[in-house]
Design a protein around this nucleic acid. Structure first.
Lengths: 244, 244
DNA sequence: ATTGGGTTAATGGTTTTACCATTTACGGAA
DNA sequence: TTCCGTAAATGGTAAAACCATTAACCCAAT
């Protein structure tokens, strides 16, 4: 083993990224704050505007900032959301590094647990939101996009009731992949995921019946999961077709 | 509701990103292939080199390409790894959007399940790797970095044995956050995670005892988890200190 | 034959300058 | 008051020039 470490020449823009990122993560730059203009940043860092812009693109891509055009524009620090993690996950799915079967297995593990926790931790306020969402999803929908949106809401709310952000982000990722697969292949979403499918789960949660909620969710996950696995093949075919 | 949708002026670089990304995800651009040089890409897309470079920074940031300098350099398509998802996750933790407690709860759910599955699916070849890793981690380590590295390996291998990429990526994320917290606060990792801690788990897995493996892992996760939760406070303090 | 140095060519990295496009604010005219 | 034009700030794009890194090649000295 050599005593020396290889030297990797670094890019100026990466140093800019590093400093800005540190500032944001440390809280020195708070969400909502505006960074100096590109020209000013270039002066402060003593680099060219191009270097600053490349750095901003990276930070934008990671969800740390959003950039607006115009007189009151600039780069604004964002509260980090779960969206970018979700998108990374979708990328892995699209790149076929993760299959629906993988996803199904994980879902079968965590969703019943979420239902169980939700039943234990639900507050009256949560109960109201949950019921509203359930009623919403049982109404007639105008479009499939809309239908899917409503039927995923119950899952989101249950995850939120757990007060565990990790569960939330997992459910988001699961739902986003599911949404895409369904959207690509099903003429009638209400057929493969009929209205009312969540009712047993929600009722058990509202009743505070942890065991019952978990079991109801398990059954739901199994039922819907089987359908989804079948859809993956269709999805992959469409995927490769549309891109050739 | 208006019949029109708002128009968001788009950036040239984003269109470049889109086209290249589609090419990669569809498989038209395969891993290992080299994209045309920046100057050629600029000509092909009929945009400036700056726009191309901003696009490359984004793709680089998402893990789709890596860019090398020099005569045989250029942008090379990468096989999408779990690393970027892991980093997104670490960002969420550093931004305090996810706590160690959240993480602990999820870990307590999935790691026993991983042990269970591993016990059911293990092959002779897996058994060899697992044993080697166990022996490795029980040897004396030179540095803490090294020690942590070895003790996480068993977790990785168990996840791989499950043949479920989703579990793999979850374990990676969990371990990376754990690694950082431990690295920031513990003078002697072997004290809080003694060698041999994994032995009961590994032995149960090797014996094909699914139930026993799950239970052993549960105990391990509880024991180590408690320690880790205590360390979070120290970590957060150090974090805000080092950045002021 | 090996070593080391020099040259060349390809490519990414960086800077500078100029100009375009978008957005907001302001002020004057109808 | 409303409308419209103008100005100013800021991000977006482009072009040209040059620097830095890497690999490949040739060649002379050892």
């Amino acid at each position: 083993m050599s005593q020396f470490k290889p030297i990797r020449p670094s890019r100026v823009s990466d140093e800019v990224v590093k400093q800005l990122r540190d500032g944001i993560l440390s809280g020195r730059l708070k969400a909502g704050e505006r960074l100096p203009s590109e020209r000013d940043l270039a002066q402060d860092f003593e680099v060219s505007r191009v270097a600053v812009r490349e750095a901003l693109r990276k930070l934008e891509n990671s969800g740390f900032i959003c950039v607006r055009h115009g007189a009151t524009g600039g780069a604004f620090v964002q509260e980090l959301t779960f969206d970018h993690l979700t998108m990374s996950f979708v990328d892995l799915f699209l790149a076929e590094r993760i299959s629906i079967e993988d996803l199904y297995q994980v879902r079968l593990l965590i969703e019943p647990e979420i239902a169980r926790l939700a039943a234990q931790r639900i507050t009256p306020e949560d109960a109201g939101r949950l019921l509203t969402a359930l009623e919403e999803e049982e109404r007639q929908s105008q479009s499939m996009e809309d239908d899917i949106q409503r039927k995923t809401t119950v899952h989101f709310i249950l995850a939120e009731i757990c007060r565990n952000k990790f569960f939330e982000v997992l459910v988001r990722a699961l739902m986003e992949v599911t949404r895409r697969v369904v959207l690509a292949g099903s003429p009638d979403f209400n057929f493969i995921h009929p209205a009312g499918m969540h009712r047993p789960v929600v009722e058990a949660v509202l009743a505070g019946d942890a065991q019952g909620a978990a079991e109801a969710m398990r059954l739901h996950a199994i039922e819907f999961g089987k359908t989804l696995i079948q859809r993956e093949k269709t999805f992959r075919e469409k995927q490769s077709l549309s891109s050739s």
